[in-house]
Computed example of a mutant assay.
Amino acid sequence: MNIKTTVSLPDHVLHYAERLVEEGRYPSLDSVLAASIEDMMRSHESVADDPLAGMTDELHRRMALPRDQWIAMDEDDLFDRVRERLAARSRG
């Protein structure tokens, strides 16, 4: 079922969509918008199911932390500290 609605687009977006129709890539402006929204829906769904996307989110979250909360990579004992943390988790 199609529902008629009105949208406002910035000039550059409208001109791009019109060019896609003129080039024959889409039959109408409606189909350009529908295809774009469907692509966004698929993108969001695939991100939610993608474990790497979760890792990316976590990396961004950690990089936003203050520098004093980062684990220093220049210390010689970095891997020893990581091993200790892992061992403590498995014991506890």
Rank of each mutant, 00 (worst) to 15 (best):
L59M: 10
L52S: 06
D39R: 13
V47H: 13
L59R: 02
L9Y: 15
V32P: 01
T5Q: 10
E23T: 00
I37D: 03
M55P: 01
A17H: 03
S43C: 01
V21G: 09
V47C: 07
P51L: 12
T5K: 13
V32T: 04
V32A: 04
L33R: 01
E58K: 15
D49F: 12
H12S: 09
I37P: 01
R42Y: 14
S43F: 08
A34N: 00
A34S: 02
A34V: 02
D30E: 12
D11M: 05
L9P: 02
D57V: 11
V21L: 12
A34H: 04
D11F: 06
A34L: 03
T56I: 09
L59Q: 00
A35S: 15
T56C: 04
L14S: 08
M40N: 11
E18S: 03
P10D: 14
E45K: 09
V32S: 02
D50R: 12
D57F: 10
D50V: 10
L20S: 07
Y16G: 01
L33T: 03
A48T: 01
P27V: 13
D39P: 03
S8H: 12
S8C: 05
D57M: 14
L29Q: 02
L33S: 02
Y16L: 13
S31K: 15
S28W: 14
L59A: 06
A35Q: 10
M41L: 14
R25L: 05
D11Y: 12
A53D: 10
D11H: 11
P10L: 15
S8R: 14
Y26V: 00
E45P: 01
R25H: 08
L52I: 07
L14V: 00
H12N: 08
R25F: 07
M41D: 10
R19F: 03
T5E: 08
D11Q: 12
H12M: 00
D39V: 05
E18F: 04
I37E: 06
E23F: 02
V21S: 11
D30K: 14
S46I: 08
V7I: 15
Y26S: 02
E45L: 12
T56V: 11
S8W: 09
D39I: 02
Y26D: 03
L59N: 04
D50Y: 10
E58P: 04
V13E: 05
E58F: 15
A17M: 11
D11L: 08
S43D: 00
P51M: 13
L29N: 01
E45C: 03
V21D: 06
S28G: 05
V47P: 01
S8G: 07
E45R: 14
M40D: 06
S46N: 08
V7R: 10
P10N: 15
M55Q: 05
A17E: 02
P27E: 08
S31E: 13
S43M: 01
M40F: 13
E22K: 06
M55C: 04
R42T: 07
V7S: 03
D49N: 09
G24L: 00
V13G: 00
